[in-house]
Design a binder for these strands. Structure first.
Lengths: 335, 335
DNA sequence: CTGTTAGCGCGTTCAA
DNA sequence: TTGAACGCGCTAACAG
C-alpha cells in the first residue's frame, strides 16, 4: 500500500480509503490511485485486513470422508450458501480416523474460522465443547450429545420406517437388517424405524438376521452372503446406507440371485439396476445448505442473546424401482 | 498472550517462546506458562502468526463441481497430501459457472493461499496468469494453454484408444462416440484416441454417429436414444465420461435393449450392472495427490531457480465387465 | 534466561 | 480532503 501510495503521490491511508470506496476522496486522487494499483498489480492482503477488522470470512467444514457422495454433496451445499454470504470454506477431512477429528477442529479454529460445521465421526463429542466456547458450531447428520448447539438431521426414523413398511406391505415377513454400528446415531435411528414398522404390523423382527456394525461395502457383502447362504434365508434386505446397499447388491449379483432390497441413500444408476430396489432418498446438498444457514445466522449475534439451539430435520422420500427394463416409452411389464 | 504472560508473571515474549518450544526457557517458567495457558484456555492466533511469519499454511483448490465423484476424489487426494505437509485446503467451487472462476481464483490468492490447484473449467486460462505471478499454480486434468506451469493429466489418449480397440477386437465396426465439448482438452484427446484405434485396424469412424458437446447425463441419454432409434444403429458405444456413460446406460435400459458400452471413468456398481461394459478407470485421488506434491514442491524454492514446468501423467486401466451374473464364488465366464 | 523494540499489512481515530 | 499515530496478535532481532 505504501508503494501504491508513493506512485500515486498520496499516503497509504488514502489508498486504503480508495480501495474501500470511502466517499471522502476527491475524484482526481481516486483515479491516480486506481491507475497506480493496476500498474503495480496491487492486491489487498485480506489476511492482514481481517486481523484488523476481526472476522476472517472463513467457515470450517469437518467431514470424515469426502469420497462418500453424501459428504461431498454436503460440502457442495455448504459451499453454495457460504459463497452466497461471502464466506470461504476451509475444509477438514478426518479420513475416517476418529481420533484426528479433535485436532482438526482445533486447527481450524486456530486459523480463525468464524464458525464450524461438523459431521462428528464417533459418538463422543466432547472435543467440540472447547471449540464451541470460541465459535458457533453446527452439527450435520448427527444430533448433539451433551452439547447445546444447532443441528441438521435426516429424518432417519421415518425414512427407515416407511421403507421397511413398504417391504412388509409386499408380504415380506423375514427382512434382514444390515446396519452400521449402533453407536452411531444414524445406525440406531434407522434400526428403530425398522423395528417400528414391524411392530405396526404385529411382527417381531428376527434378531437372528439383524447385523449391525458393518462399516463398508466389503463387510456388508460378506454379511449378505452369509445371510443368503444360511438355512433360514431372509426374503428381503434393509440396508442403512449406500455402502451397505452396494455391498449387498454385489453379494446378490455374485450369487446370481435376487431378493428385494430397501436401503438408505440414493446412488447413481439405482434406477437402472433392474433390481427390486426401494431407496430412501434425501437431499444431502440441502443438509449442507441448512447447516450453513444456521451457522451464518449465528455469526451476527455474537454476544447478544444466543437463540436457543435449533434443530432442522430434512425429509426423506421413498422411491421404488422395479425389477425389469421398460419398453421404449414408460415402464413395461416383466415377463 | 499478554494475559497469559500476566498470569504466569512473564512477558508476552516468553509465552511466545514457550509455545514455540524455544529451547532458551527455564523449566520453571515453562511450566508456569503452560499452566496459565490451559487455565485461560488460551490458543495462539494462527492468522496473526502467519502475518508475521509469512506463509499462511493454506493452499487453494478450485473445481467446478464437487458433486462429481471425479472432483471430490481429487479434493480428497489434495487434502491428504496437504495434511501430510501441514497445509490446509481452502476450497473453491465454481458451480459450473465458468465466468466465476477468475474471481474465485483471485479471492483465494487475496486470502494468502500459498499456492493453487485448479481444474480449469473452460478452455481459456488467461485469468490464471495473474494468479501465477503471485503464487505457484498447478493444473489438474487439463494441460496449460499458453501458460508455463505444472500439470497432472490423465492418459486420455491411450485410455480411449485401448477401450476402443477392445470394442473393435470384439468385431464392432460401427461404434458411436458420445463426447463432451471438443473445446475441452479431455474431449479432444479422447476423441483422438477413439480415432487412432480405428485407424490402427483400418476403419474410418462414421462421423454420422459421432456426437460431441454432451454436457450431462440427460443430453447423453437423449443422444443415445436418437442413435439407437435411428436407421443405422451403432453396434457399440464409446462414452467420454461417467455422466455420459450413465446417460447412455439409462437410455438403453429404458429402451429395453443392450449394446456394449465402453466409457471413461469408473463408477459405483459398474461391475454389477450385468451389462457388457468396458471401463477406462484411473485413480482420481492420485491426480489430487500428485498435484499437491507438485505444488508443495514449488513452495520451497520461492525465488530461487524455478524448475521447468513439469507434467505428470496418471495411467489409465481398462476393465471389462461381463453381461451375466457369475456363479456363487468368483467371476463366471461371459458367454 | 528474559524483556524491549519494532513491524508484518491494514484500518480506526483524530488532527490538520 | 488528506495524513499521522496507534494497534489488531504475533515474533525476529537485539538488548540486558
Amino acid at each position: 500500500m505504501q508503494d501504491v501510495g508513493k506512485l500515486a503521490q498520496v499516503s497509504a491511508m488514502t489508498v486504503s480509503r480508495v480501495l474501500k470506496n470511502d466517499p471522502g476522496v476527491s475524484e482526481a486522487t481516486r483515479e491516480r490511485v486506481f491507475s497506480a494499483v493496476d500498474r503495480l498489480g496491487y492486491r489487498r492482503n485480506e489476511t492482514a485486513r481481517s486481523l484488523r477488522l476481526g472476522g476472517s470470512g472463513m467457515i470450517g467444514l469437518v467431514v470424515t470422508n469426502l469420497a462418500n457422495p453424501f459428504y461431498s454433496r454436503l460440502a457442495l451445499g455448504v459451499q453454495e450458501v457460504a459463497t452466497e454470504f461471502g464466506f470461504r470454506v476451509l475444509l477438514g477431512n478426518s479420513a475416517e480416523q476418529t481420533d484426528r477429528e479433535p485436532e482438526l477442529v482445533d486447527d481450524l479454529v486456530d486459523h480463525q474460522v468464524e464458525g464450524l460445521i461438523v459431521v462428528p465421526a464417533g459418538s463422543r463429542q466432547q472435543h467440540l465443547a472447547g471449540a464451541m466456547r470460541r465459535v458457533p458450531v453446527v452439527l450435520a447428520a448427527r444430533p448433539p450429545a451433551g452439547l447445546d448447539t444447532d443441528c441438521v438431521l435426516v429424518d432417519d426414523f421415518h425414512g427407515a420406517r416407511e421403507a421397511t413398511a413398504s417391504l412388509l406391505a409386499d408380504g415380506h415377513t423375514r427382512i434382514a437388517f444390515l446396519g452400521n454400528p449402533p453407536a452411531l446415531y444414524t445406525g440406531a435411528e434407522r434400526l428403530r424405524g425398522f423395528w417400528a414398522a414391524h411392530e405396526e404390523v404385529g411382527i417381531e423382527p428376527d434378531s437372528g438376521i439383524i447385523r449391525q456394525g458393518l462399516t463398508d461395502a466389503l463387510t456388508a457383502e460378506r454379511a449378505t452372503r452369509e445371510l443368503i447362504e444360511g438355512s433360514d434365508r431372509p426374503s428381503a434386505l434393509f440396508c442403512t446406507n449406500n455402502r451397505i446397499s452396494q455391498g449387498a447388491i454385489r453379494a446378490l449379483y455374485k450369487a446370481g440371485t435376487t431378493i428385494p432390497i430397501a436401503g438408505f441413500d440414493d446412488f447413481d444408476l439405482s434406477d437402472v439396476l433392474g433390481l427390486p430396489l426401494t431407496i430412501v432418498s434425501y437431499d444431502a446438498d440441502e443438509i449442507g445448505r441448512q447447516a450453513a444457514r444456521l451457522l451464518i445466522g449465528r455469526l451476527g449475534h455474537s454476544d447478544a442473546e444466543p437463540p436457543a439451539a435449533r434443530r432442522i430435520t430434512v425429509p426423506t422420500r421413498v422411491v421404488r424401482h422395479g425389477a425389469a427394463p421398460g419398453a421404449d416409452a414408460g415402464p413395461a411389464p416383466t415377463e
